[in-house]
């Protein structure tokens, strides 16, 4: 990431930089450099702080932090497996639910002949992206939760709070973003190849599967990865509908019970009152910091891979 970027600045560049740019010194440049430098310094500092502080809980728990699901600050044990699982499952499920709608819906829109309709729909979906997450959370609690409870209670859903509810809510939240990205992608490819396809007599569907989809696949995948990242990092909306039940695993009651009923994710754990409570207990605080560190690593890792990927194919 930053390290490989920094590595590309070879010594000779640095020397040349200072040598030839000495005459270009100015107040603006100085200020800009100071700001840039301090941001880097702060980010690195925060990162190091996180790594350093996480040591405490790792020393106590070791790998069971990741492998065990026995998070209990009162009992001084911090197995976060259920948290990791919760985050990953909700994010993946959200993506899976959302993917066909965003992908194929965007294709349908791309093929729409009427410019006006297309514009309105595009605008509508883009507007949907502006809605704050707390409003989605509200809708989740007031509308989605009772609705799902009605449908799924014969299947074992108890309260309407749960991983499935959270995943559905998340999929609605990432839908506008994915939709716009796919639309842009399809629009670009379509612009390039549509005439040729027309002259060859291809149907729209054939055009999609033989041309647009294969060519657009890298961008589609990277959009999905972006959506996944967004879903995994969402806190407030999920907090209100996930039930906040610690340490539940699918092995206990089966997958259906796991999905339909309450759970917990990394972000909802961090969004709760444990942040305040942890203040006096170094181990508890360290555990929460380690969670935050994992979240950072996951998101930064995903975005770096995406970056490399899109730079590579561009």
């Amino acid at each position: 990431m930053a390290i490989s970027g920094l590595a590309k600045i070879k010594t000779k560049h640095v020397l040349a930089f200072f040598a030839e740019h000495r005459s270009r010194a100015s107040l603006t440049r100085l200020i800009a450099l100071i700001v840039f430098g301090s941001v880097i310094f702060l980010s690195l500092g925060a990162f190091i702080f996180l790594v350093w502080k996480s040591g405490i809980v790792l020393r106590q728990e070791g790998p069971s932090f990741f492998l065990e699901a026995n998070w209990s600050f009162r009992g001084n044990s911090y197995g976060a497996k259920a948290l990791f699982l919760g985050s990953m499952i909700t994010a993946f499920l959200a993506l899976m639910i959302c993917a066909p709608f965003s992908l194929f819906g965007a294709w349908a829109l791309q093929n729409l002949r009427s410019e006006k309709t297309r514009f309105s729909i595009e605008a509508l979906v883009t507007l949907m992206a502006s809605v704050p997450s707390v409003v989605y959370g509200l809708l989740g609690i007031l509308l989605l939760r009772p609705f799902l409870l009605q449908i799924f209670s014969p299947f074992g859903m108890e309260t309407g709070d749960g991983l499935l509810t959270a995943s559905l809510l998340l999929s609605i939240m990432i839908l506008p973003m994915l939709f716009s990205l796919h639309l842009e992608n399809f629009s670009k490819i379509s612009k390039k190849y549509r005439e040729q396809a027309f002259s060859l007599g291809l149907s729209r569907t054939k055009f999609f599967w033989s041309v647009v989809f294969p060519l657009g696949l890298p961008a589609i995948l990277s959009s999905f990865a972006l959506g996944l990242g967004r879903a995994a990092g969402e806190t407030v909306a999920v907090f209100l509908v996930i039930g906040r039940l610690d340490n539940k695993l699918p092995s206990e009651g089966g997958w259906i019970d796991y999905l339909l009923n309450a759970g917990q994710s990394m972000t909802t754990k961090l969004g709760g009152p444990e942040i305040f409570i942890s203040h006096q207990s170094p181990t508890h605080e360290s555990a929460l910091l380690l969670l935050a560190l994992c979240l950072i690593l996951m998101s930064v890792g995903t975005s770096s891979i995406l970056l490399k990927f899109s730079k590579g194919e561009a």
Binding site: A2, G233, E234, T235, S299, V300, T302, S303
Partner: peptide
């Protein structure tokens, strides 16, 4: 750096 900061969850 900007991409990294951008991707970090708000919580």
């Amino acid at each position: 750096l900007l991409h990294a900061l951008n991707s970090i969850p708000s919580i």
